[in-house]
Design a binder for these strands. Structure first.
Length: 369
DNA sequence: AACGCGGGGCA
DNA sequence: TGCCCAGCGTT
């Protein structure tokens, strides 16, 4: 039996029924691939369904606003994917007459589509013979070939890609690619793979030499750094005396770019220094001279390469305010409308669990004078 | 080549 | 905690 025969036989018995399998519509495949980058299928699945319902085709997606798209993307992480999604949808509509490029090289030119995604779309939708090389494939084939070259080097990746190409044959590259990834995802798993029931164990170099636990080898380790965020939640009153809060859309190349959050002071420790010691814009400096009506305990938010240690300060300010009083980039929003903004998971949780209930109390108290 | 970018699940 | 997940863009 060839590698290919064994793999396809395993796949026929074990393949999961996933909603983007069994279609050749490049839009559906592209959308699923963008959602699934660095994301577990179980985590991405509900997002995929919501996106398909909201944007059934690339034209519908191209007509969306960035804020609307990001709201739907909220909680998935890696928000550049959502911005690239919109950019590419508009590119396909405006420069490709609504039709996705039909080959690997042209797909690669689109924003958000790298070597893996281009190969996935080209093989699944168009039957092009290009091997997909995702984390599952790297793990499976580096074990199969017994390669101890660190997987986070271009040399190792090129070797795996060439090996995958040499194994895939000429018939139905899309199904071969699906099967290759599925085997890595379900059988040749990162920790404690079940080698004694593996259909490849007789030919697997890592298993034969007892190196399964050491492969794939990795060169660089993740180093976690701390960041300290102090969020100032400011409640003002608008011209009709209704509560409004100041929020800001995050800019620059930092974390959570293009999501909304509250006025933020970042420090080097969890202690918030006195206002005169801080290099901060004038409106916030004024604010820090008054006392917050509520201060949160430290709230940790753990990411892969960062741990955000945050505190929230709630200010109930009787003063009336209009948007002109605020620094550039800020806007005002009522507490009832806050849920319509795309915000980081940290903000979403703290808002729902700790801040919104307190604001409701404050507002209710003032209504019943 | 190295780094930054989210969030969740698992050992 | 550390590692990984249907990676990509930037520097």
């Amino acid at each position: 039996m060839t590698f290919r025969k064994i793999l396809l036989s395993w796949y026929r018995k074990n393949a999961r029924a996933l909603p983007w399998r069994g279609t050749r519509d490049p839009y559906v495949i592209w959308l699923s691939e963008m959602i699934l980058q660095q994301t577990r299928i179980e985590q991405g699945l509900p997002y995929f369904h919501r996106f398909m319902a909201a944007y059934p085709d690339v034209g519908a997606l191209a007509a969306a606003s960035e804020d609307e798209l990001l709201k739907l993307w909220q909680g998935l992480g890696y928000y550049a994917r959502a911005r690239n999604l919109l950019k590419t949808a508009r590119e396909v509509i405006e420069k490709h007459q609504g039709t996705f490029p039909g080959n690997y090289n042209d797909l690669l030119k689109l924003k958000g589509i790298g070597p893996y995604s281009a190969a996935a779309i080209a093989s699944f939708a168009f039957g092009e013979k290009v091997p997909v090389t995702d984390g599952n494939v790297f793990r499976f084939l580096s074990r199969y070939s017994g390669s101890v070259i660190p997987i986070d080097t271009s040399q190792a990746r090129n070797n795996i890609r060439d090996l995958a190409y040499s194994l895939m044959g000429d018939v139905d590259p899309g199904t071969f690619n699906q099967a290759l990834m599925e085997f890595g995802a379900l059988h040749c798993v990162p920790a404690q793979p079940v080698c004694h029931s593996c259909p490849f164990s007789h030919a697997c170099a890592a298993f034969q030499t007892g190196q399964v636990q050491q492969i794939p080898n990795k060169k660089s380790k993740i180093k976690v750094r701390y960041r300290f965020f102090h969020y100032l939640v400011c409640i003002f009153r608008d011209v009709r005396n209704s509560p409004v809060m100041a929020v800001k859309k995050r800019q620059g190349k930092d974390i959570w770019r293009s999501l909304y959050d509250f006025p933020l002071i970042e420090t080097q420790t969890i202690r918030l220094p006195a206002s005169q010691e801080l290099q901060i814009p004038q409106p916030l400096r004024q604010l820090l001279k008054t006392k917050p009506c509520w201060t949160s305990p430290e709230i940790k938010h753990v990411l892969t390469h960062r741990t955000i240690r945050s505190k929230f300060y709630l200010y109930d300010l009787p003063s009336r305010i209009t948007a002109q009083h605020l620094p550039d980039g800020y806007r005002l929003i009522s507490p009832e409308d806050f849920h319509s903004l795309a915000v980081p998971r940290l903000i979403d949780k703290v808002w729902r669990e700790r801040i919104e209930p307190r604001i409701k109390k404050i507002v209710a108290k003032q209504m019943t004078f």
